[in-house]
Each structure stands twice: as structure tokens, then as C-alpha cells.
Design a protein around this nucleic acid. Sequence first.
DNA 1: TCGAGTGTTGTAAACGTTTACAGTGAATGC
DNA 2: GCATTCACTGTAAACGTTTACAACACTCGA
Lengths: 356, 356
Amino acid sequence: MVRVTITQVAVHAGVSVASASRALNGQIASAKTIAKVQQAAEELGYVADATAQSLKLGRTNQLAYAVADIGNPVYVEMMTAIERVVSASGYRLVLSSTGTSSSSVDVVRDLGRGYVDGMILSPLRVTDELLAALAKTPTPVVVLGRLPDSAKLDTVRADSITAMRLLVDHLVEEGRGDVVFVNGPSDTTPGALRRDGFAAAVAAHPAISARSVGADDFTIAAGYAAALQVLQERPRPDAIVAANDLIGIGSIQAATDLGLTVPGDIAITGVDNTELAGVIRPGLTSVDLGAEERGRVAAQLLLARIVEPNRPAHTVTVAPSLVVRGSSLARSQDPAASPPSHRTEAIDFNDERAAR
Amino acid sequence: MVRVTITQVAVHAGVSVASASRALNGQIASAKTIAKVQQAAEELGYVADATAQSLKLGRTNQLAYAVADIGNPVYVEMMTAIERVVSASGYRLVLSSTGTSSSSVDVVRDLGRGYVDGMILSPLRVTDELLAALAKTPTPVVVLGRLPDSAKLDTVRADSITAMRLLVDHLVEEGRGDVVFVNGPSDTTPGALRRDGFAAAVAAHPAISARSVGADDFTIAAGYAAALQVLQERPRPDAIVAANDLIGIGSIQAATDLGLTVPGDIAITGVDNTELAGVIRPGLTSVDLGAEERGRVAAQLLLARIVEPNRPAHTVTVAPSLVVRGSSLARSQDPAASPPSHRTEAIDFNDERAAR
DNA sequence: TCGAGTGTTGTAAACGTTTACAGTGAATGC
DNA sequence: GCATTCACTGTAAACGTTTACAACACTCGA
């Protein structure tokens, strides 16, 4: 089956290509012409070539989502939300992995080739080079993450400060007073932000004692190793705030292997509220950074900018919400009392204080 | 910043557009011309327009991955593998969700618009309409899943028969004799295949007793509900084979809530070997259907077909592998003896018997 | 000195659309 | 009956590339 062009449709219908195009696109044309052309298109199985249309119309109906590590559940959640918005608006979504071959900078430079009408970028780290490339690109870009204010770009960010404060406040309310933050690598953007957020949160509670340690990675194994060490120090802390759910799960396993009960001997919390947090026993209390909402908002910002290229840059901060499960309840409570988690409606403290 | 075309580069360099194009694409040209053109391109910040090139060259350098429910971990794993292969070959990957707006059939029809050079399709269910659309489309398609032999298409499939036999054989070896298969909806393709696989597997063991029940969905909650019922029947079975990991996890939770020990009172296995299987306690024995490999192979088949459109259709069946964790060990063994799973090198029975 | 050969360049067509513009015929107003 | 409008249609240009083909200049051998 070879390509059938609008020219063939036109001759088959006995009209000019212009009339054929108009008839097919609902432009002005006589009823008779429309009928003839539509029948001819039908008979020949005509479908308009997307590339030719793109060239002529100056838009591709494609948007890109560029992220370092697709496969990371948080990014997948964002992607799913983005895909929903994007496809509902008639755009296709192309995936640009910045991890494999090309860096964020290359990806942004490549935007100049015009293969998409816009991009949502979730950069690993923000370099001057990247900022320069972003400033120069003619294609709209929405950035997921933190950017210097000088960059006049649409941005969607999580609120790590509030997120960590939700966790620390919760632990204090549950009677904990000696908290250790188990971070991932702090030279990454999330690592740095969560560490700072934790520091700010504990500063608001002068009565408690707190410190930070670093795991080698944002993984279960690294969290296990770090927690194993933390839990063997004396005096033993009564709470671990893990920088993400994987580290939190590793910490729970370390505690269990040491014969400690969670939350009896030690309270443990995570960040990201992944599916894992609900599956493990006890359920892992976790703060949800709103990945789904961030993805959705980013997509909406991008669509809005495409419609109106010169609107002022928006920065949206998505409010985190605390999801309390068994791993952080007060010692006094009976952990066995917590019902099976798949039926549990986890308590959700949606925080209204977060910046809008 | 507006678009700079090759024409502008040409005048700036004082040559014709043809020479400019040749100089930039490494075609035949004098050293002097190449230098002039490259400098002009540099100065003007020229980048070739992808759409115009696509139109002229008749290829888009894009491949599509169409799947019902992106967000499902199994599909994400495939997607990651596909992305790796595809981007290494210089293609972009576009994501076509068949769930949201359009059906598989629409997606395949849309291929005629030529916005990609090929597609990897993972259809929800295979209808005659879909087969007809596939037969008609001019664009190469590789199908992930089962297809009638009459469809002369490249196909990559999992081996459910062998997968279920690995599980049943394993349970029998571990001394189980009364096995219940907790399926998801059996009107789905995986549901039907796994049910048939289970039936075939138990047929090879006349000594054991076996039956099937259906959960409402492939979810933890549905698995919990179904298992709760199964486990309260008398005589109680000594093993549950769940149709996927989520149902398996729900089953473990149901057993725990009923005061049963796993694997002491009941052995439980899953399918897919998701991350969850390693996180839950006890670890869930699961058979890995090779999602990563299926994705990779599908991408390779697609690339090969693009290079050689008339090669005969290939069907590749990927061998499953059994990953044994604590949930299915023999009663005699001490479940507490199983080491913390993140350190566990799970035993992996890669099955050589599976078709290649 | 001329012809053939070689290496480079320019002209123009082509990819498949959309659309500005001019042109056609019929209907209408005077 | 003629001019004006109107609704529609066709011609051709344009989007930004690549490339077939012809043209050119130059070298070399006879």
C-alpha cells in the first residue's frame, strides 16, 4: 500500500487540489464538491500526511517530556499525568531521555530543530550552560524543578520545606524527640532541598534533638546500610526521617532485622508516597510531593504558553500532603490495631499553608 | 529568535542553497565552500528544520510505543528498554496511549498519517478490526502479545505456559499438593493465557488437586478479597498461585489477617516479578516474564524491519524465569532463616526449555 | 589547440500540504 | 440588459529541505 496524496484525491473527484483541501478541512466549498471529495478520499483511503501538514502549518502537534531517568516511579507518575493532558488537547507526547545519549543541554539545543511545539523538562542539575540554552531556545519550555529567579520561565516545583515540616511536626506530635534524617546523596537537587527542608523544620522545634546522615543512594539497599548504623548508635534515636520511600523501606527492614519494632521502638517516615509505602508492613508514613499534580500543571502551563507565547512566566508550587500510615504512630498506640492497608483510607493532611 | 533557514546561510556564505546543503551534510564540496558554509551556519545559529527534512527524506526518525495503560510497571519496564534501543539508533520515541482517547484501532489507522517510521503495539485485546487495520497499514508494526498465525507480523510474546509450569513444578517440589489459581479477569489476554497455562501445568501433575477462582481485577484489593474467601474454605489449600504480583500481595495480606503464616500454612506465588515482590515480607516468589527483554527485542525487530521491509515475519518468545523468595518455601524450612531480601540473591531458574 | 575527463557548483524540481489571489459563473438589483 | 455582488473554484506560491541534472572551469593528454 503506497501513499495516496491529496492530488490523487483531487483528480479522482474531478476537482483541483485546493478544492479538495478545502472540502476536507471544512473550509468554504459547495455541498456537491464536499460530497465528491469525501467519497473520493474514502475510496482511495486518503489520510493527510502529518509531516507535510506540519511543514506548511508550522506546528507539529507534538510536545516533549525530557527527563533523566524514565522508569523512576515519580517521573512515571508525572508522565502519566502529562500524557493525559497533552493527548486530550490533541498533541502527541515524545519522550526525550536525557540520561542515555544526550544531556539536558543537548536536548534543549535540539529543540531548535522544531520537532516539537514545546517541552517539559525535568533537569538533573541546573547549570549555567543549561540556563543559557533555555534562554536562547525559540520553543516554549516548562521546567519541573528549581530555577534561579533570573530565568524567566514557567516553572513547577514541589515544596520541600513544607514537606519536611509536615513530617517533623507529625513526629513531634506523636511524641518523638530524637530524629535522624537519612538523606540520599546531597549533591543532587532533591537531596539538597530535602536536607535544607529538614534543617528548617527541626529549627522550629528547639526542644528536639536532630541530626542528618547520608546514604550512598536513594535505594533500599543504601537506606538499609545507613539505617543499620544509625540504629546501633547509643542513645538510639526514636525516629528516622528518610529522604525517600526506598530509603524508608530499607530503614524499616534494618530495624526489623535488629529486632526493633516499628513504630514501637522507632518511628520511620518516607517521601514520595509511592505504591511501595502502602504495601510494606507496617505501612510507611510518607509525604506526597504531588507528582501527578506537578505533571498536570506543567502540561497546562505549556499549553497556555503555546496559545499565548508572550504571557508572563508563571511559577507554581504544588502543596505536599502527609499520608500517615502505621510506621509513625505514637508508641502508646497498638500497631496491630491498624487495619489492612489496602482498605485503609490513609489520613491525608493536605497542607493549605503551602505557597500557591 | 526566529527561524534561520538554509537559504539565509547560503547567501551569507555566498553560495547556492544546494552547495550549502551539501557542505553541511558532508556531501561532495570543496574545502573552501565547506569552511564558508560552516562559518555562516555557526554565525547565524542555523539548525536544520526537522519537519522539512522529514518531508523531503520520507522518514521522521520517530518510532511510537502504543500501550493501553502507561503507568503499569510492566509496561514501564518495556518502555524503558525500548527507549534505550530506539534512542541509541537515533530515533525519538513517541508515546501513544491507547487508553485515553483512542483505541488500538484508531492508533493503527493514524499510522497512515506517517508521523512515525514504525510502531510497537501492545494491544489490550486483539479484535478482527484491529487485525484488519494492521494488515492495511503501510508502516511497520511490531506487536507485543499474542496474534493469530495468519497475521504475518513481527511479534514478541511471553511464554505463559512455561511460566505457569515453572511455578507449579516449584510448588510440587516444595511439597504442596492442593493449589488454587487466583486469576484476574479471564476475558483479558493475560488472564486467559495464564489460566490456560495453569491448567496445562497441573495436568502434568495428576497427583495434586487444583482449581481456579477469579478476582475482579489485577489489584491488591481484589486479590485480598478473593484470597480471603479461598482461605476460609475447607479443606484449606496449601498453595495459592496468583495471576500477578498484586493479587499475590493481596493474598499474603489476607493470609496474614487470617492468622495464617506464609509459607508455613500457605505458599503464595506471583507473576511479573515487580519491585513489590522483593519489598514485601515474606518475599513473594514470582515468575519474571522478561518485560525488559521483550521490550528490547521488539525494538530490535522494528529497527530491522525498517532497514529491510520485506524480510519474513519473526515471532520471538521470551523465556520466563522463576525467582524464588520466602513465600513459597517448603514448610519444613524456617522462614526466619531467609535473609533480608535486599541482600538476597534470589534464586533464578532461568528456563532453557522455552522456545527461542 | 582541442577533446575528454574531473571536480565543483548552480538551477530547479520535488516531497505533500495549505492558502492568497484571481477568476468563473450565476443570481440579484437597478 | 447590464453591472454588481456572491459563492465557489482553480492556479500557483509557499513552507525548508535534498538532490537530479546541467553547466562550468580546470587539468591533462594527444
